[in-house]
Amino acid sequence: MNTTRLFRPLVVLSFITFALFSCNEGLDSILPEPDLSLVEDEFEVNTVLEDLDNLTLKSLEASGLGFRTTTIANGSICSTATLNHDTAGKKITLEFGSGCTSNGITRKGKVIFTYTGSFLIPGSSVVTTFQGYEVNGLKVEGTRTITNTGINIQNFEITLAVKIQNGKVTWPDGKVSSFITDQVRKITLGSSGYQASVTGTGSGTSKTGISYTASISEPLIVTQSCVESGISIPNKGKINFSYLSFVFTVDYGTGECDKKLTITYPGGVKEMTLD
């Protein structure tokens, strides 16, 4: 469920050198290849938020609030994680304690889901907050609200409005990324897990202080099997990032479960594979 936030500035930061050069020389000059070394930092934020979508779905299902009943006591999340469901208070707390690792992802702290009712009912919502929550050393803050705007039980499909307010990720060195997002996610459940088709917009400030906006130009496709295998970027789709007067596009491919993407920027195209 992407939960997400998929609107991190994967490429915007990498074009600082390019942007300064083009402002001084003009677009008719020979443009240098952008420095893409910072893409890895922003990819970490995507990993955090895609992982959150998976945690949300599993926590709801384990609490009897989803299409099916599952358990969190498996390696796809963390074998030592605990789930407390306060039915009277309509609150679910997923706790990782001082830290546990699964599929290369180390989580600690708490994720708290407060819900209005069964998530199968249109109009119901889940608000996610955090207490000391970290993923691979990144501290996560903010409020994420998911609202059921439509459901097709026959086809196991659900449409969600997903908003993040006051989103904040802090790196171990104290640098901070802040962001807001406004998305629509169509979730389809199948025998091999869920698939999410995501559209929407976002904006924020990178950890180096660069402001940006983002818009999904072709729906992003995210699958549960890829997320749980440690590949937390979309399998397919495109995002346009705007920074200053420039627009850069990230293309996630045609459906393969990998870490390859193509970046198109004024003056060139760059293919890369995220570590």
Rank of each mutant, 00 (worst) to 15 (best):
S124R: 15
E141P: 08
N136W: 00
A161D: 05
V162N: 08
D275E: 12
G150E: 01
C23M: 08
T128N: 00
K236T: 03
S118D: 01
I105A: 06
V135K: 10
S59L: 00
N2P: 13
L36A: 10
L261A: 06
T47W: 05
Y194S: 12
I92P: 08
K90I: 09
T159F: 09
V12E: 02
K108R: 14
K175I: 01
T82K: 07
F241K: 04
I153A: 13
Q154S: 12
D41F: 05
E157M: 15
E25Y: 11
F67S: 02
E157C: 08
N103T: 11
T208K: 12
E50V: 12
G202D: 01
G230R: 05
K260S: 06
T114F: 05
A62C: 04
V247Q: 10
G26A: 11
L38D: 09
S191I: 14
D53F: 08
Q154F: 11
W171H: 08
G123H: 06
Y243H: 10
T3P: 07
S215A: 10
I187L: 13
V135Y: 02
L244D: 04
Q131C: 03
T114G: 01
A73F: 07
E228Q: 15
P266C: 09
T87Q: 03
K259Q: 03
K270L: 02
N166D: 07
T47A: 13
G97A: 05
A196I: 08
D258I: 15
Y194N: 09
S125N: 06
N54T: 09
H85C: 04
T69C: 01
Q183A: 13
S59K: 00
E271A: 04
T147L: 04
